[in-house]
Design a protein around this nucleic acid. Structure first.
Lengths: 346, 346
DNA sequence: TGTTAACACGAAAACGTTTTCGGTGCGGAT
DNA sequence: ATCCGCACCGAAAACGTTTTCGTGTTAACA
């Protein structure tokens, strides 16, 4: 077991000073051709690589980006990570991920752990619990310490930082307009409780679309599920609630669901009620997921372009990191959604 | 913007030495009650937190685990990460992830980037390209530098390190035995080309199960797809190949697929051929995926317990890290698979 | 011969910690 | 008066770099 070789060891072996070795390796003109060659040869032989930690300490830059997300077993979030990793790597950065698991405490702890020198900046999506408690002190504190943050998807306006979001309202409008255009008269929405920003925005889009098409919204067509139900364990409860929706609206012929699972479950319920998709009832989901593509029938969906979100977020952050000291100016980037038409609509 | 406060600043403000501050904060008996209180109060006021990088440099430990996986947009891998993160955090470790994207070069580059001091050890799953080229020098090099590695899922026996795997052979046998037990006479396997270890092992399990039940394997029942086809873009090609399988075996009544996508696609093809699942043909997949659960019909599958794999891998690694110097002894941990029965089998 | 400039290299500081090893001052014992 | 021990604190090294500044040697030049 040969430990990693350091400048000091090379210096000792070659009987020169540490500075000479360092300079030689960095091709400084100060060092004679002769010693430069000698040092380089030796370094190559022993496979010398500068120690990242020492460099980080010296430069006060870690070349590392911290990611905090609520959950990683999730198609959307993993796509975002992929996007971040892609451009981070291209710029010589690494990514270190922390999972909040939708918990406020874990979010805070994770951020504190990373903020003490381990990373140069954050890219994050806020946990549900944090959104619920509306306690954002940890974001403000890290920002005030000079550490830039980029938020994506689940954001809050109060925080002064760069943001990358999807136009949830517009995406939802597109979907609902599609249903209307396809002849649906009774369009329901299956959404989450209001405190999660994206649920609220998509509901807003639903309402706006109805209004634009002069359709009176009906309370019975708006199903707000507790979003613990996304966690796959409460599937039965979710199914029950959707069944109620069907029973209360016999003439239901269109469903817009704010996520993939709700949509898939709605299709399952529809089938149970003997309704044919898309002839009797049409369904549109909202997500980047893998379920939509491979379900039967495959699901028409509003794609969020998770990877692109990640890429943009990383670009914004890295720009901030490499242009420090310039006047602060935060932007909110909106990624266009795309309606991907599949078999669940006409 | 107030930068993070350091020991030196506290020392200057309080007119004591750096050492005194450090000791006071760590409750050293060397420092008088008085100054201890004073220092602590000041530190608390300015929200002092020791700089991780400096600590890492001093201790030559980063308390960080490097993960290298081929792909993150993948249910199995993200579950593994979740497991790793869980126990890592419990022990005060962070995780930093690198994606090889199934490329040998990216795997090497990522490892080199992290091995220079950024992390204490690796948890990784080998990329397909690496398995194909059988070039494992980067693993051996990092190990010989004293950095422990734990491999999971896709491993090679040549490398001397801890490993966490699923009993692919046994899992496959369970699945095929189930099909046999359910009365299937013509059981096909849809698998990958041989160089990916898991595909090979699962095929082996398939063959062993047949043998145990005195069934002659037939070459036409073994479909080896190029595994670029998992990438969702070659779906049509995959579908074609499976159609050929159906055409060549009119009496096909059981399918064992080595991953979720193959299984789902097989069900799609079956439906196209007018076969009813599970009455005419039964299907079993191999994975932890989300598709299986929500497909119609839902898919009977061999679960790999990805999260548990991650947890065990992290435990192995952390044990190694915290018991350095003890005699080397590598173990290979086998996580039991579980056959989850759903609607695609009788 | 004395001055200067170029060249080649080393010492040391700095990044932020922790820890070892010495102090200093003081009270009590001899 | 001398010595010892104790309580309290600081200097300095160490982790591995990079970089600034200084210094010695040599050759060129007046």
């Amino acid at each position: 077991m040969k430990r990693k070789v350091t400048l000091k060891q090379i210096a000792r072996e070659l009987d020169v000073s540490i500075s000479t070795v360092s300079k030689a390796l960095r091709d400084s003109k100060e060092i004679s051709e002769d010693t430069r060659e000698k040092v380089k040869a030796f370094a190559k032989l022993y496979n010398y690589r500068p120690n990242n930690i020492a460099l980080s300490l010296k430069n006060r830059k870690t070349k590392t980006i911290g990611i905090i997300i609520p959950e990683i077993v999730h198609h959307f979030f993993s796509k975002v990570i992929r996007g971040i990793e892609l451009v981070a790597n291209k710029h010589g950065y690494n990514v270190i991920v922390g999972l909040s698991n939708e918990s406020f405490d874990k979010e805070v702890i994770n951020m504190e752990m990373l903020a003490n020198g381990s990373i140069d900046g954050f890219i994050l999506s806020i946990s549900k619990e944090t959104l619920l408690q509306q306690d954002y002190h940890h974001f403000n504190e890290t920002i005030s310490q000079g550490m830039p943050i980029v938020m994506f998807d689940r954001i809050v306006n109060e925080i002064h930082c760069d943001k990358v979001i999807v136009d949830d309202v517009k995406g939802a409008k597109k979907a609902v307009a599609k249903l209307v255009g396809n002849g649906c008269k009774q369009i329901a929405i299956i959404t989450t409780k209001d405190y999660v920003s994206v649920g609220r925005l998509r509901t807003q889009g639903y309402l706006e679309a109805l209004e634009e098409h002069k359709i009176q919204p009906k309370a019975s067509l708006i199903l707000k599920v507790d979003d613990k139900l996304v966690s796959e364990d409460y599937l039965d409860v979710l199914e029950d609630e959707i069944e109620q929706l069907f029973k209360q609206n016999k003439k239901l012929d269109g469903i817009f669901a704010v996520n993939e699972l709700y949509a898939i479950t709605a299709m399952k319920v529809a089938r149970k009620f003997g309704k044919h998709i898309p002839n009797d009832i049409q369904v549109i989901g909202f997500t980047d997921g893998v379920l939509s593509k491979h379900a039967t029938p495959s699901l028409t969906t509003v794609s969020q372009h998770g990877q692109e979100i990640g890429e943009k977020a990383a670009e914004l952050l890295i720009y901030k990191l490499e242009h420090e000291g310039e006047e602060e100016h935060f932007q909110t980037m909106v990624i266009e959604t795309e309606l991907i038409e599949r078999e669940s609509t006409k």
